[in-house]
Amino acid sequence: MTGPSGGLVGRGRITGAPSRQPSAPDEYWQQEPGTRWYVPLVVEEWLDAPVPRQRFVQDERFAEQSPLRTLFAGNPHKVTDAQWEAFEATFPGRGASDATGWLLEPGDEVKRKELHDRYGGSRQGGISKCAKSPNVLVFTDPRTGHQHGYYDEWAEDGTFHYTGEGQTGPQSLDSTGNAAIRDHVELGLALRVFEGSRGVVTYVGQFAVDPADPYSYGKAPGTGGGPLREVIRFHLVQVGATAPQSAVPVGTDYRTADESVTPAAPQFTPPDPDLAGRNLSAHRRLQNALAEAARARGLEVFSPRVTDPDFDLGWRASADGLTVCEVKSLTESNETRQLRTGIGQLLDYHDRLRGRAADVRAVLWVEREPADPRWVALCARAGITLAWPGREGDVLG
């Protein structure tokens, strides 16, 4: 808290992704600032009395780079690990966990029974709202989920589409589990995603419902191959680091992309032109055709699992090496943007996977040869193979 009587007064946590929202009521401001960026924040612990700022000013850990000297600059303020320790030391009962008592890191494995013993929630089902801790535990597992029509997957826009609860009949947003996901930011609950549903599960990381496009509806069979019914697909975005740098296997069985899909009218301009109009169908045709060509050469083709970055497809020629591929449609007007986007995505994928395979190759597969030939050499300098239909041998050989 700023001002003459200011100081450290409490601590909390961010519970979701940032979004643009109207500012607080008019009477709060001397001058209305209009629509601004906000993040949902829950204050979990208030001190009985402020710890005066002067106490920290006199601490040698704040001698050089200090947020205390720029209190009227824009928020947030970044602090060093030592400075954070100084703040934490003023709170009673501090421990090795974060402010919520959460002890797991992305990639950690835990028995589901022990997970619920520690944090609460039901040991059954895919969505578990905890009573003992401020968490909603979400489990995704194609081995058990597909039999109930739960097809969870990464979408082209980088969100993870998670199927809501309800094994028969149309799913409802008001059911206990679905409401917990929908309202987790409002309720101050962290959304924790796990891969697996029984026995030992892997913690993927913290996610949040996409505030701009929180969910959509789709069709899927009921339990045991029942008739098609309406299901809810929550659009989840990653909060912080989620990809484990460990021996977790990369990829799962390839999922053929639906080429007949008609994209819904977006609420905002999508950052990737592949998500709009004819580009989405072209993207999926390209992806499926390349997957078929890879299979024809005897390669093991796969799609990303939830612990993986959201590449379009990948293939494996040996146990030690793998290739991940980003697919882009191209038009004269979007060529530069698409190539820039694809290169950035592949650099991210490669960095996140290099600790999980001895050899990781990156391929940018585009609709046609770029009009500007410099892109081939630029990609090569970045360690990326740029190719298009007719040059399958360059990437599958």
Rank of each mutant, 00 (worst) to 15 (best):
T2A: 09
G7Q: 15
V9I: 11
I14S: 00
P18R: 01
P18K: 03
P22A: 01
S23Y: 01
A24D: 09
A24C: 01
W29I: 06
Q30I: 11
Q31L: 11
Q31S: 14
Q31W: 07
E32T: 07
W37Q: 12
Y38N: 08
L41E: 00
L41R: 00
E44A: 09
E44S: 13
W46E: 07
L47I: 00
A49F: 04
P50M: 06
V51Q: 11
Q58Y: 11
Q58I: 13
Q58M: 13
D59Q: 03
P67S: 10
T70D: 12
N75M: 11
A89K: 04
T90I: 02
P92L: 09
A96I: 07
A99M: 02
T100N: 11
L103Q: 09
L104S: 08
P106N: 01
E109M: 10
E109C: 04
V110S: 11
E114N: 14
E114R: 15
G121N: 14
K129A: 15
A131L: 15
V138G: 02
F139T: 12
T140W: 03
Y150E: 15
Y150D: 15
Y151T: 15
D152F: 14
W154R: 02
A155E: 10
D157N: 08
D157L: 00
T163N: 14
G164K: 10
S175A: 13
T176R: 15
R182H: 10
V185G: 05
L189D: 07
A190R: 13
L191A: 06
R192K: 13
R192A: 11
S197M: 15
R198F: 12
T202M: 10
T202R: 14
Q206A: 09
F207Y: 10
D210R: 01
A212G: 02
D213R: 07
P214R: 11
Y215D: 00
G218T: 14
P221S: 10
G222Q: 09
T223C: 07
G225A: 11
V231D: 11
I232H: 08
R233T: 03
V237E: 06
V248P: 00
V250M: 03
V250G: 03
G251W: 02
G251H: 06
Y254F: 15
A257P: 08
D258A: 10
E259A: 05
P263R: 01
F268Q: 10
D272N: 12
D274G: 07
L275K: 01
R278M: 06
R278E: 15
H283L: 10
A289M: 06
E292F: 13
V301T: 03
P304N: 03
V306C: 03
D308F: 05
P309R: 04
W315N: 08
A317L: 05
A317C: 05
S318D: 09
K328R: 12
K328V: 00
T331E: 06
T331M: 03
E332K: 09
T341H: 05
G342V: 01
Q345F: 04
L346Q: 09
G355E: 01
L364M: 04
W365D: 04
P370T: 03
A371Y: 05
A371G: 12
R374N: 04
W375C: 01
C379M: 00
A382I: 01
G383V: 07
T385E: 07
L386T: 02
P389F: 06
G390V: 03
G397D: 10
